[in-house]
Simulated scan of single mutants.
Amino acid sequence: MNLQFISKIKSISKRKFYLIHSVQKPHLDRFHSRLVRKVCLFILPFFFLQCASSGFGTQGLLYENQRISLMETGNSATKEGFSCAKSYLGLIALGDASIETAQKQGNIKEITSIELETYNFLGIYAKLCTVTKGI
């Protein structure tokens, strides 16, 4: 084959490659940016929405505020004690929500009922409180 003809084919193919590459690159950049936006808007929130969670009862994705009874003797109560633990984004958890702490806080000698109060807002802030009632 003629060398001049081969060099023309090579130069044409190089131009085509550059043209195709220059047309497709912005398209790929837009595709990747759209993909990143979709991941950030739709997938990542599901990982972070339930970061801070009480872990008891039904779980509300956006909001949770409930009281769950664990034990009840049926006897009347005159005193009530609370103990709470809080969580921020599921990264930091502070507090003591134990039954003993709630009993001491309410100065209760005999426990007649134990309940859990849960609160969660968007997984940003969650609170779990133990409520003891007794005499």
Score class of each variant (00 low, 15 high):
N2L: 09
N2Y: 09
L3V: 01
Q4H: 10
Q4R: 13
Q4E: 15
S7R: 10
S7W: 02
S7T: 11
K8Y: 03
I9K: 11
S11N: 11
S11P: 03
I12Q: 15
S13Y: 03
S13T: 12
L19Q: 09
I20F: 05
I20H: 08
H21T: 10
S22G: 12
S22T: 08
S22H: 12
S22F: 07
V23G: 00
V23E: 13
R30K: 13
F31T: 13
S33F: 12
L35K: 05
V36D: 11
K38R: 09
C40Y: 12
C40R: 14
L41R: 08
P45I: 00
P45K: 03
F48E: 05
F48H: 02
Q50V: 09
S54A: 11
F56T: 01
T58K: 12
Q59N: 11
L61T: 14
L62V: 11
L62I: 10
N65A: 11
N65I: 03
Q66M: 11
R67N: 12
S69E: 12
L70I: 13
M71E: 14
T73L: 01
T73G: 00
T73S: 12
G74V: 04
G74R: 03
A77Y: 12
A77R: 01
T78L: 10
T78K: 07
K79Q: 15
F82D: 08
S83Y: 07
C84S: 08
A85H: 01
K86Y: 14
K86H: 13
S87N: 14
Y88E: 04
Y88C: 10
L91A: 13
I92Q: 01
I92G: 01
G95P: 05
S98N: 01
I99M: 02
A102Q: 01
Q105I: 02
G106Y: 00
N107K: 04
E110I: 14
E110S: 14
I111Q: 01
T112F: 11
T112W: 07
I114H: 00
E115C: 04
E117I: 09
T118P: 04
Y119D: 01
Y119L: 15
F121H: 03
L122V: 03
L122M: 09
G123L: 07
I124P: 02
I124N: 03
K127Y: 00
C129T: 07
V131I: 14
T132M: 02
K133S: 07
I135M: 10
